[in-house]
Nucleic acid binder design. Structure first.
Lengths: 121, 121
DNA sequence: TTCATATTCAACCGTTAGGTTGAATATTAT
DNA sequence: ATAATATTCAACCTAACGGTTGAATATGAA
C-alpha cells in the first residue's frame, strides 16, 4: 500500500475544515443537491462547490448526475481509514504503558523481596 | 460546548500533515527531545520545531522542560474527540439506513398483503 | 569565562487554501 | 426560440502553510 499516506492526507485535510464537516454532517442524514447544500451557508455557491470537490477527492462524497442537478451522497468508508490510523497510535501508546506498568510491578516485587529478606533474619 | 469545533479544527489540521503524523507515531512509542525527533527528517530543525508547536496547540503533544532540553510526550486524549465526531457521522448514517430498511420491509409486507388478499377470493 | 549544545524567534519566500466575481455550459421550463 | 435554473470553469485576491536562513536565548560542559 503506497497510496495510504496520501489518501489519509486527503481524508484528514477534507475533515479539517468546519464547512466541509457541516456538509458531511448534512449528507450523513440525507442525500442532497449542490444548491440545497449551499443554501444554509453564508458563502457563495462556488465556494461550497469547491468544498464538495475536496470531499469528493477524499471519496467521502459521491456524485450522481441526473440532468442538470447533481445528487451528492455521503460515503463513510474513508472514515475507517482515519480511525484506523488513530487506533494504531493508541495501541502503540497503551502497549508502551503496559510495558512501563510491568516494569514498575517488577520493581515493586523486587523491593518487597529485599524488604522481607532483610526483616527475615 | 462552544469551543468543540475550533479544537476539532486544530486536532484534524494537526493530523492532516504526514510529517506531524510521523512525529506523533514516534512519540506514541517513546518520549523524545526536539532534536531527536527532528533527526530522521530531511527538513531543518526549525521546520520540525514548528510542526511540534502545531501538535502542542492541538494538545496532542505535551512538553516538559529540563534545563535546555525539552522532552515531548504523546497525549492521545484529543484523538477521542476526533473519533467521536466520526462515530457520530456513522451513527447518523446507519440510522438513516435502518430507517430506509424499515421502510422497504414495510413496503414488502404491504405488497405481500395485497397479493394474498387478491389470491384469497 | 569561554565554548558548545538545545531550542526558539524573526523575517522572508513560494505554494496552497478558501474565498470572491464573472462567464461558460448544460438542462429544463415557457 | 427564449428564458430560467443548476452547476462548473477561470481568473483573481488574501491569508495561511510549510519551508528556509540567520540571529537570539538559555543551559551545560571545559
Amino acid at each position: 500500500m503506497k497510496h495510504a499516506a496520501s489518501s489519509l492526507n486527503q481524508i484528514l485535510t477534507a475533515l479539517a475544515d468546519p464547512t466541509r464537516r457541516a456538509i458531511l454532517h448534512r449528507l450523513s442524514t440525507a442525500d442532497a443537491r449542490v444548491t440545497e447544500i449551499a443554501r444554509p451557508f453564508r458563502m457563495s455557491l462556488n465556494a461550497v462547490s469547491k468544498h464538495i470537490r475536496v470531499l469528493e477527492r477524499a471519496r467521502l462524497v459521491r456524485r450522481r448526475r441526473a440532468g442538470r442537478e447533481h445528487f451528492l451522497s455521503f460515503n463513510p468508508a474513508p472514515l475507517n481509514d482515519a480511525t484506523a490510523w488513530m487506533e494504531g497510535q493508541r495501541a502503540l501508546w497503551s502497549a508502551r504503558l503496559n510495558a512501563l506498568d510491568a516494569m514498575l510491578q517488577a520493581e515493586d516485587r523486587a523491593s518487597f523481596d529485599s524488604k522481607t529478606k532483610g526483616s527475615m533474619r
